[in-house]
Nucleic acid binder design. Sequence first.
RNA 1: GCCGCUGUAGCUCAGCAGGUAGAGCAGCUGAUUCGUAAUCAGCAGGUCGGGGGUUCAAAUCCCUCCAGCGGCUCCA
Length: 672
Amino acid sequence: MPQKDSGKIVAKKGSTFAEALKAAGVKNAIAALVDGAEYDLSTVAKQDTTLEPIFPDSPRGLKILRHSTAHLLAHAVMELFPDARPNAGPPTDDGFYYDIDMKPINQEDLERIEERMHQIASRNIAVERENLSRKELLKLFAWNQYKLDKIMENVPEGESSTVYRQGDFVDFCRGPHVPSTGYLKAFRLLSIASTHYKADENRPMLVRIYGTSFPDEKSLKEFLKNREEALKRDHRKIAQEMDLLVFNSERAPGFPFYTPNGMIIRQELMNFMARLNRQYGWEEVSTPHIYRDVIWKQSGHYAKYKPNMYLFTLSDGDSYGVKPMNCPGHITIFERTPKSYKELPVKYCEPGTVYRYEKSGEVGGLTRPRMFTIDDGHGFMRFDQIVGEVRSIMEMVKATFSGILGHVDMTFDLSEIDKNSPENYLITYHCNRCGTDVEARKAAMEEELVCPSCGSTDLSPDFSTWDTATGQLRQALDEAGLEYAENPGEAAFYGPKIDVHVKDALGRMWQLSTIQVDFFMPTNFGLYYINSESKHDRIVMIHRAIFGSYERFMAILIEHFAGKFPTWLSPLQAYIVPVSEKFNDYAIEVEKFLKGSGIRARADTGTETMNKKIKIIRQMRPSYILVVGEREEQGKSVSVRNRKDKTSVISLEEFQKKLLKEIEECRVEQTL
RNA sequence: GCCGCUGUAGCUCAGCAGGUAGAGCAGCUGAUUCGUAAUCAGCAGGUCGGGGGUUCAAAUCCCUCCAGCGGCUCCA
């Protein structure tokens, strides 16, 4: 059993951390924590040192374990492929990888490498840390340009750094690592991929081997089982089985086509959102999909987004762009009349379909399509209204996910400006000579920023607008009692934002909702309102989406529910099977009765046997299977089989009543 | 876009030391009328992703294009 926190352990001067832990009766530790820094167990205390053991089942320990397993991987590769040149092998969220310059390998090679890793692990070779001077390091790794690059980048002239050695294998590394290869027991190589050195297309291609590692076999098995489950739930596979959508790779690569079944789910989600929007004061509008290029120039999308847009020019010379975003359309509606401060906020929403050209290698399934529909909303408001509106949107977010998933496990990010690189953002600059304020995003400018009134180049960034807006987002989160992570540098260039992540049934986090404050576009479009002093004042826009996109959200729901949608979303709510042809009439009667109240019911009067029908319909994942025969016909009842294969006999009217209630309430669990 | 893998019937896949295609399911026809996870028989279905080349002969070998999948953020 892994040990719990064993309180304070002191390594006496001159003894190793391993000895100290042993003396304290601590077993299974793989490293030690001293003042927040991680150390090898072989570290010798320079003075009496208070340390904390790191166990492999803790987050820190797991990282170390996986990092060591990455070394083991490189070690095995070097034994099998002496020409290989390892680059980098870090731990990741659920395992590790190692990037190696070598000839492409196949699945068999992967198995051989894994086998060799087990061999090396069982040799239980000590993993030893050595401190070497820069010069020694460069000499040691003279054979490997990648390591040389790292040494030169990371070890200043005249300084030293560390390597880790296990037998013949040595790696330039900060560590810490497990004491010996024998600590690595439960690991598995998962896949072969490839990657450019430093993610730069112009640099050489490296083989990336992914793997994972756990403290024990049981956790590994669990992980692999989970992974397999995720594969089984792949939305592309289930969407195929349930006939929800198709892709036609020749006619429209990357564009989803919804079939009638898929459209049912999509439509239900849209209805759900439409209702919520009405409830929270978001008015639905509809905007064109194609615009003259002038609007894209004005919005700034051309400057930043042009390579991802579908553009065309007609024979009369007019150029058009298909919309990659909905905001310009909503702005066009908003600006049709001047607005008084009393009218704000104005909130428009639309299930807005956008088209974005994704490079061929980037498209895939519903998560990266080239066309998707955002449950988009743009609020136009005064500065002082941000907090209230953000809070209201947060309520919508909560209502949405607790309503659809039945529980809410969410995390929040507050993405802020990186004040060290103001040039990347649209901010105000204050002229130090004449006091004029000018707004600019320096990174997008070709010439130096000068004061528009006096021509001075002495301008200082003024973060006050950003600070206020960020403060308002923070306040909204605080007032809602939510915990959140603050991420400097993650803001959009036009304003700070809140991102919402939701956990699915497999424990994966998905970024869904986003709430963004925007100063940029209102400026570009010259949006204003008339304040109480009859003066023009600045409009602030909030962009928000709750599902994100219908496509992506559907994909996530498919995987979350493994296709077994709550009844209100299910394309087939009642599948009716007559016991034999004799009862076809009653089956049709049941179908008609249920359909009459809007239930998606289908009687199968085909010539197959009942058993076969039940078997085949399984992949369509109907909510309920109704078997009807003589008894049911006599008693005007149905034999109901739910998704857990529980059967019950109930009167037809009662069934209809209960089903309607289940649908009406968007119940996640079946009630029958 | 780049790298690797893959592309054979509606679906899942076999065939690939080169000798012009095969199975199961789905579909169609007929028989069967059946109480909760596949009744039986027959039929039909593919210019093997597109194009080019090598060859007497290409699904199979070579080139090229297209598409799908996994990666291309985690840094020693």
